[in-house]
Simulated assay, not measured.
Amino acid sequence: MLRVAMVCRMVPEKREEYLALHRAVWPGVEQTLREGNIRNFSIFVRGDVLFGYYEYVGDDLAADDARMAADPVTQQWWERTRPCQLPFDADGTEPNWQTMAEAWHLD
């Protein structure tokens, strides 16, 4: 199992829209995540900072990511959520969600 943590910021004016979307995540998006071997996915919020965590239980994250990205429902979801997000680092070159390196883990 691979633990993945990521962080981004919300566009302040879009905060409530983003949170409202996540109070009712589309079932098709959740199904695609499950089929992509994603488990225990959580998003936490503090101010305009979003912290996401999930566990990947598959064998080929790149292939599963590609399948999820090709899903039409997921693409529509991203079209709704992407305008609400900003990269954590203002000058970041990664997409809005920037992955974090694990510094410590208690098992």
Score class of each variant (00 low, 15 high):
V4I: 10
V4E: 06
V7L: 12
C8P: 06
R9I: 00
R9N: 02
M10T: 14
K14C: 09
R15W: 09
R15T: 14
E16I: 07
L19K: 10
L19F: 12
L19R: 13
L19S: 06
A20W: 06
L21W: 01
H22P: 03
H22A: 00
W26D: 04
E30M: 12
Q31N: 12
Q31S: 12
G36C: 10
N37T: 11
N37E: 14
I38P: 04
I38K: 14
R39I: 01
S42G: 12
I43W: 07
V45Y: 10
R46P: 06
R46H: 14
G47R: 06
G47K: 08
D48A: 07
D48I: 08
G52F: 05
G52T: 09
G52Y: 04
G52D: 09
V57N: 03
V57H: 11
G58F: 02
G58E: 02
G58H: 03
G58N: 01
L61Q: 12
L61G: 02
A62R: 13
A63E: 13
A63W: 05
A66D: 11
A70H: 02
D71Q: 02
V73I: 14
T74G: 04
T74H: 06
T74W: 01
T74E: 09
Q75W: 04
Q75S: 00
W77H: 10
W78C: 00
W78M: 00
E79C: 05
E79W: 00
T81C: 08
R82G: 07
P83Y: 05
P83R: 10
C84E: 00
F88W: 08
D89M: 14
D89Q: 15
D91T: 15
D91G: 15
E94S: 13
P95N: 10
Q98Y: 07
T99I: 11
A101K: 12
A101W: 06
E102L: 13
E102P: 15
E102A: 10
A103I: 13
A103L: 11
